[in-house]
Amino acid sequence: MSGHIFIQQPGNAVVTDLGRFRGPRFGLPVNGALDQYSARAANILAGNLDNDPLVEITALDFRMKANSDILIAVTGAPLTLTVGGRPCTQWEPVSVRAGETVAIRGINRGLRAYLAIHGSVEAPMLLGSCAPDTVVGFGLQLKEGTTLLTRRSVGPVRQPYFDLPLFRLGLERPSMGQQLMVDVTDGPDVAEFGGSAELLFTSEYAVSGRSNHIGLRLGGELPERTSSGEVLSRGVPVGAVEVPSREELLVLHRGRGVTAGYPVLAVVTSNGLDVLAQARPGDKVHFRKTTVAEATSAHRRSRAQLETLRESVNTVFGLLGIGCRPQWQDLPVAACS
Protein backbone atom coordinates (compact mmCIF):
# COMPACT_ATOMS: atom_id res chain seq x y z
CA MET A 1 0.00 0.00 0.00
CA SER A 2 1.40 3.37 -0.91
CA GLY A 3 0.88 6.70 0.81
CA HIS A 4 2.05 10.29 0.86
CA ILE A 5 4.62 12.27 2.78
CA PHE A 6 4.05 16.00 3.11
CA ILE A 7 7.03 18.27 3.59
CA GLN A 8 6.17 20.85 6.26
CA GLN A 9 9.59 22.45 6.68
CA PRO A 10 12.08 21.63 3.92
CA GLY A 11 15.18 23.33 5.32
CA ASN A 12 17.77 22.32 2.76
CA ALA A 13 16.79 18.83 1.66
CA VAL A 14 16.84 16.82 -1.57
CA VAL A 15 15.86 13.33 -2.67
CA THR A 16 19.01 11.52 -3.75
CA ASP A 17 20.69 8.11 -3.98
CA LEU A 18 24.27 6.84 -4.20
CA GLY A 19 24.91 8.66 -7.46
CA ARG A 20 24.83 8.73 -11.24
CA PHE A 21 27.64 6.29 -11.98
CA ARG A 22 26.97 6.41 -15.75
CA GLY A 23 27.14 10.23 -15.70
CA PRO A 24 30.88 10.90 -15.98
CA ARG A 25 31.06 9.21 -19.38
CA PHE A 26 28.56 11.80 -20.60
CA GLY A 27 30.18 14.76 -18.87
CA LEU A 28 27.89 14.71 -15.82
CA PRO A 29 29.27 14.44 -12.28
CA VAL A 30 28.37 11.36 -10.24
CA ASN A 31 26.68 13.44 -7.50
CA GLY A 32 24.53 11.52 -4.98
CA ALA A 33 24.73 11.30 -1.18
CA LEU A 34 27.92 13.00 -0.01
CA ASP A 35 28.28 10.81 3.10
CA GLN A 36 27.87 7.45 1.41
CA TYR A 37 28.31 5.40 4.60
CA SER A 38 25.49 7.21 6.41
CA ALA A 39 23.25 7.05 3.34
CA ARG A 40 23.77 3.31 2.92
CA ALA A 41 23.25 2.77 6.64
CA ALA A 42 19.94 4.69 6.58
CA ASN A 43 18.62 2.60 3.70
CA ILE A 44 19.78 -0.67 5.27
CA LEU A 45 18.15 0.27 8.60
CA ALA A 46 14.93 1.01 6.74
CA GLY A 47 15.07 -2.38 5.00
CA ASN A 48 15.81 -0.87 1.60
CA LEU A 49 18.39 -1.46 -1.08
CA ASP A 50 21.50 0.71 -0.57
CA ASN A 51 20.82 2.71 -3.72
CA ASP A 52 17.12 3.45 -3.09
CA PRO A 53 16.07 7.13 -3.13
CA LEU A 54 16.29 8.78 0.30
CA VAL A 55 16.30 12.30 1.74
CA GLU A 56 19.58 14.17 2.29
CA ILE A 57 19.17 16.99 4.80
CA THR A 58 21.94 19.59 4.91
CA ALA A 59 22.44 21.78 8.00
CA LEU A 60 18.89 23.12 8.45
CA ASP A 61 15.89 21.89 10.46
CA PHE A 62 13.38 19.66 8.65
CA ARG A 63 9.80 18.51 9.31
CA MET A 64 7.43 16.18 7.47
CA LYS A 65 4.40 14.04 8.11
CA ALA A 66 2.89 10.99 6.44
CA ASN A 67 -0.72 10.01 5.80
CA SER A 68 0.03 6.34 6.41
CA ASP A 69 2.07 4.35 8.91
CA ILE A 70 5.71 4.27 7.84
CA LEU A 71 9.07 3.04 9.06
CA ILE A 72 12.04 5.40 8.85
CA ALA A 73 15.71 5.54 9.82
CA VAL A 74 17.82 8.67 10.30
CA THR A 75 21.63 8.62 10.16
CA GLY A 76 24.49 11.05 9.52
CA ALA A 77 25.21 14.12 11.62
CA PRO A 78 24.05 14.01 15.27
CA LEU A 79 20.69 15.76 15.69
CA THR A 80 17.46 15.81 17.65
CA LEU A 81 14.89 13.47 16.15
CA THR A 82 11.28 13.55 17.32
CA VAL A 83 8.26 11.66 16.04
CA GLY A 84 4.91 13.00 17.17
CA GLY A 85 6.87 14.96 19.78
CA ARG A 86 8.54 11.83 21.23
CA PRO A 87 12.34 11.80 21.19
CA CYS A 88 13.61 8.96 19.02
CA THR A 89 16.98 7.35 18.40
CA GLN A 90 19.11 7.92 15.33
CA TRP A 91 20.76 4.95 13.61
CA GLU A 92 17.76 2.72 14.47
CA PRO A 93 14.54 1.93 12.60
CA VAL A 94 11.70 4.14 13.90
CA SER A 95 7.95 3.57 13.49
CA VAL A 96 5.87 6.61 12.51
CA ARG A 97 2.05 6.54 12.75
CA ALA A 98 -0.11 8.21 10.13
CA GLY A 99 -0.43 11.92 10.89
CA GLU A 100 2.60 12.15 13.18
CA THR A 101 5.20 14.80 12.45
CA VAL A 102 8.82 13.74 12.02
CA ALA A 103 11.08 16.61 13.10
CA ILE A 104 14.83 16.88 12.66
CA ARG A 105 16.49 19.74 14.52
CA GLY A 106 19.78 21.01 15.77
CA ILE A 107 22.40 19.77 13.34
CA ASN A 108 25.44 21.54 14.75
CA ARG A 109 28.19 18.94 14.71
CA GLY A 110 28.53 17.46 11.27
CA LEU A 111 26.50 18.83 8.37
CA ARG A 112 24.39 16.21 6.61
CA ALA A 113 21.71 13.79 7.79
CA TYR A 114 20.00 10.98 5.87
CA LEU A 115 16.37 9.96 6.22
CA ALA A 116 15.34 6.71 4.58
CA ILE A 117 11.74 5.49 4.40
CA HIS A 118 10.97 1.77 4.24
CA GLY A 119 9.94 1.03 0.66
CA SER A 120 11.54 4.33 -0.43
CA VAL A 121 9.86 7.17 -2.34
CA GLU A 122 9.10 7.89 -5.99
CA ALA A 123 11.62 10.17 -7.68
CA PRO A 124 12.41 11.20 -11.27
CA MET A 125 15.41 9.44 -12.78
CA LEU A 126 18.18 10.58 -15.14
CA LEU A 127 20.74 8.04 -16.43
CA GLY A 128 19.60 5.58 -13.80
CA SER A 129 19.81 7.90 -10.79
CA CYS A 130 17.58 10.39 -8.98
CA ALA A 131 20.57 12.37 -7.64
CA PRO A 132 20.10 16.09 -8.24
CA ASP A 133 22.43 17.76 -10.74
CA THR A 134 22.39 21.51 -10.18
CA VAL A 135 24.23 22.25 -13.44
CA VAL A 136 21.76 20.57 -15.78
CA GLY A 137 18.84 21.54 -13.55
CA PHE A 138 17.71 18.04 -12.59
CA GLY A 139 16.45 16.67 -9.31
CA LEU A 140 13.96 16.89 -6.49
CA GLN A 141 14.77 19.78 -4.14
CA LEU A 142 12.13 19.62 -1.40
CA LYS A 143 9.93 22.66 -0.78
CA GLU A 144 7.21 23.40 1.71
CA GLY A 145 4.17 21.45 0.53
CA THR A 146 6.12 18.98 -1.65
CA THR A 147 4.37 15.61 -1.61
CA LEU A 148 6.41 12.44 -1.88
CA LEU A 149 4.77 9.17 -2.87
CA THR A 150 5.85 6.35 -0.57
CA ARG A 151 5.92 2.89 -2.03
CA ARG A 152 4.97 0.89 1.05
CA SER A 153 3.19 1.27 4.35
CA VAL A 154 4.31 -0.49 7.55
CA GLY A 155 2.13 -1.01 10.58
CA PRO A 156 3.50 0.21 13.90
CA VAL A 157 6.32 -1.92 15.22
CA ARG A 158 6.01 -2.51 18.99
CA GLN A 159 8.24 -4.45 21.30
CA PRO A 160 5.87 -7.11 22.62
CA TYR A 161 7.97 -7.99 25.67
CA PHE A 162 8.53 -5.51 28.48
CA ASP A 163 9.53 -2.10 27.29
CA LEU A 164 12.96 -2.87 25.93
CA PRO A 165 14.27 -1.03 22.90
CA LEU A 166 13.33 -3.00 19.84
CA PHE A 167 16.60 -2.80 17.97
CA ARG A 168 20.12 -2.87 19.28
CA LEU A 169 22.03 -3.00 16.09
CA GLY A 170 25.27 -1.58 17.43
CA LEU A 171 26.56 -0.06 14.22
CA GLU A 172 29.75 1.95 14.37
CA ARG A 173 28.80 5.59 13.89
CA PRO A 174 31.18 7.95 12.18
CA SER A 175 32.81 10.36 14.61
CA MET A 176 32.09 14.01 13.99
CA GLY A 177 33.65 17.11 15.41
CA GLN A 178 35.50 20.27 14.60
CA GLN A 179 38.83 18.50 14.06
CA LEU A 180 38.70 16.21 11.07
CA MET A 181 41.32 13.68 9.98
CA VAL A 182 41.14 12.98 6.27
CA ASP A 183 43.15 10.23 4.56
CA VAL A 184 44.58 10.89 1.10
CA THR A 185 46.79 9.03 -1.36
CA ASP A 186 49.37 10.68 -3.61
CA GLY A 187 47.75 12.17 -6.68
CA PRO A 188 48.92 11.39 -10.22
CA ASP A 189 50.56 14.84 -10.48
CA VAL A 190 52.20 14.99 -7.04
CA ALA A 191 55.65 15.34 -8.65
CA GLU A 192 54.62 18.72 -10.09
CA PHE A 193 54.56 20.14 -6.55
CA GLY A 194 58.11 19.09 -5.59
CA GLY A 195 58.95 19.25 -1.90
CA SER A 196 56.06 21.61 -1.19
CA ALA A 197 53.66 18.64 -1.48
CA GLU A 198 54.61 17.74 2.12
CA LEU A 199 52.91 20.93 3.35
CA LEU A 200 49.61 19.14 2.88
CA PHE A 201 50.48 16.86 5.80
CA THR A 202 52.06 19.37 8.16
CA SER A 203 49.49 22.18 7.88
CA GLU A 204 46.07 22.67 9.36
CA TYR A 205 43.32 23.75 6.96
CA ALA A 206 40.10 25.62 7.74
CA VAL A 207 36.91 24.82 5.82
CA SER A 208 35.67 27.92 3.97
CA GLY A 209 32.01 28.93 3.82
CA ARG A 210 32.24 28.77 0.03
CA SER A 211 32.27 24.97 0.16
CA ASN A 212 29.49 22.84 -1.30
CA HIS A 213 28.73 19.48 -2.94
CA ILE A 214 30.99 20.37 -5.87
CA GLY A 215 34.04 21.00 -3.75
CA LEU A 216 35.39 22.14 -0.41
CA ARG A 217 37.64 25.17 -0.23
CA LEU A 218 40.24 25.03 2.50
CA GLY A 219 42.41 27.85 3.80
CA GLY A 220 45.95 27.14 5.05
CA GLU A 221 49.51 26.75 3.84
CA LEU A 222 49.43 25.83 0.18
CA PRO A 223 51.74 23.52 -1.73
CA GLU A 224 52.98 25.24 -4.88
CA ARG A 225 53.23 23.88 -8.38
CA THR A 226 56.83 23.97 -9.54
CA SER A 227 56.16 23.35 -13.22
CA SER A 228 54.05 25.62 -15.36
CA GLY A 229 52.54 25.29 -18.78
CA GLU A 230 49.25 24.40 -20.30
CA VAL A 231 47.55 21.26 -18.94
CA LEU A 232 45.13 19.49 -21.26
CA SER A 233 41.68 18.86 -19.78
CA ARG A 234 41.60 15.48 -18.09
CA GLY A 235 39.09 13.42 -16.18
CA VAL A 236 39.50 14.20 -12.48
CA PRO A 237 38.49 11.77 -9.73
CA VAL A 238 36.10 12.63 -6.92
CA GLY A 239 38.39 13.54 -4.02
CA ALA A 240 41.00 15.29 -6.17
CA VAL A 241 43.00 17.86 -4.18
CA GLU A 242 44.01 20.81 -6.37
CA VAL A 243 45.63 24.20 -5.85
CA PRO A 244 43.84 26.40 -8.39
CA SER A 245 44.63 29.72 -6.73
CA ARG A 246 47.05 31.26 -4.24
CA GLU A 247 44.27 31.56 -1.67
CA GLU A 248 42.76 28.15 -1.12
CA LEU A 249 43.06 24.42 -1.55
CA LEU A 250 40.21 22.85 -3.52
CA VAL A 251 39.02 19.33 -2.70
CA LEU A 252 36.54 18.07 -5.28
CA HIS A 253 33.52 16.16 -4.01
CA ARG A 254 30.75 14.25 -5.78
CA GLY A 255 29.35 17.25 -7.68
CA ARG A 256 32.71 17.95 -9.35
CA GLY A 257 32.93 18.74 -13.06
CA VAL A 258 34.32 15.56 -14.59
CA THR A 259 37.14 17.26 -16.49
CA ALA A 260 39.57 19.96 -15.43
CA GLY A 261 42.96 21.34 -16.29
CA TYR A 262 44.62 21.55 -12.87
CA PRO A 263 47.24 19.08 -11.63
CA VAL A 264 45.98 16.62 -9.01
CA LEU A 265 48.17 16.82 -5.89
CA ALA A 266 46.42 14.12 -3.84
CA VAL A 267 43.17 12.15 -3.81
CA VAL A 268 40.95 11.80 -0.74
CA THR A 269 40.05 8.17 0.04
CA SER A 270 36.48 6.87 -0.12
CA ASN A 271 36.25 6.91 3.68
CA GLY A 272 37.85 10.37 3.79
CA LEU A 273 35.16 11.73 1.45
CA ASP A 274 32.51 10.70 3.99
CA VAL A 275 34.42 12.63 6.66
CA LEU A 276 34.57 15.72 4.43
CA ALA A 277 30.85 15.41 3.66
CA GLN A 278 30.26 16.28 7.32
CA ALA A 279 32.72 19.22 7.47
CA ARG A 280 31.15 22.52 8.52
CA PRO A 281 32.53 25.93 7.61
CA GLY A 282 35.19 26.74 10.21
CA ASP A 283 36.02 23.09 10.99
CA LYS A 284 39.71 22.20 10.90
CA VAL A 285 41.07 19.53 8.58
CA HIS A 286 44.32 17.57 8.82
CA PHE A 287 45.40 15.34 5.96
CA ARG A 288 47.12 12.01 6.55
CA LYS A 289 48.97 10.10 3.85
CA THR A 290 47.96 6.53 3.13
CA THR A 291 48.34 4.06 0.28
CA VAL A 292 45.72 2.87 -2.18
CA ALA A 293 45.99 -0.66 -0.72
CA GLU A 294 45.41 0.64 2.83
CA ALA A 295 42.57 2.91 1.72
CA THR A 296 40.89 0.01 -0.09
CA SER A 297 41.16 -2.23 3.00
CA ALA A 298 39.75 0.49 5.25
CA HIS A 299 36.84 1.07 2.89
CA ARG A 300 36.12 -2.64 2.64
CA ARG A 301 36.11 -2.90 6.44
CA SER A 302 33.48 -0.19 6.75
CA ARG A 303 31.38 -1.76 4.01
CA ALA A 304 31.66 -5.15 5.75
CA GLN A 305 30.19 -3.53 8.86
CA LEU A 306 27.23 -2.43 6.77
CA GLU A 307 26.81 -6.00 5.52
CA THR A 308 26.70 -7.23 9.13
CA LEU A 309 24.08 -4.58 9.82
CA ARG A 310 22.06 -5.74 6.84
CA GLU A 311 22.01 -9.31 8.16
CA SER A 312 20.83 -8.16 11.60
CA VAL A 313 18.14 -5.95 10.09
CA ASN A 314 16.95 -8.70 7.77
CA THR A 315 16.70 -11.11 10.71
CA VAL A 316 14.73 -8.68 12.87
CA PHE A 317 12.50 -7.55 10.02
CA GLY A 318 11.91 -11.16 9.00
CA LEU A 319 10.73 -11.98 12.51
CA LEU A 320 8.46 -8.93 12.51
CA GLY A 321 7.10 -9.63 9.04
CA ILE A 322 8.58 -6.46 7.54
CA GLY A 323 10.42 -6.86 4.29
CA CYS A 324 11.05 -5.66 0.79
CA ARG A 325 9.73 -8.93 -0.60
CA PRO A 326 6.00 -9.61 -0.47
CA GLN A 327 4.94 -11.57 2.62
CA TRP A 328 2.66 -14.60 2.38
CA GLN A 329 -0.27 -12.47 3.51
CA ASP A 330 0.28 -10.13 0.52
CA LEU A 331 -0.01 -12.93 -2.03
CA PRO A 332 -3.22 -13.41 -3.97
CA VAL A 333 -5.42 -16.09 -2.41
CA ALA A 334 -5.04 -18.34 -5.45
CA ALA A 335 -1.30 -18.55 -4.89
CA CYS A 336 -1.85 -20.05 -1.46
CA SER A 337 -4.40 -22.67 -2.40
Binding site: D186, G187, P188, P237, V264, V267, V268, T269, S270, V292
Partner: peptide
Protein backbone atom coordinates in the same frame (compact mmCIF):
# COMPACT_ATOMS: atom_id res chain seq x y z
CA UNK B 1 48.91 4.14 -15.64
CA UNK B 2 48.73 6.35 -12.56
CA UNK B 3 46.97 5.72 -9.27
CA UNK B 4 44.21 8.28 -8.70
CA UNK B 5 42.84 7.38 -5.28
CA UNK B 6 41.18 4.12 -4.23
CA UNK B 7 38.41 4.33 -6.86
CA UNK B 8 40.08 5.53 -10.06
CA UNK B 9 43.09 5.14 -12.33
CA UNK B 10 44.41 7.60 -14.88
Amino acid sequence: IYESGDSALR
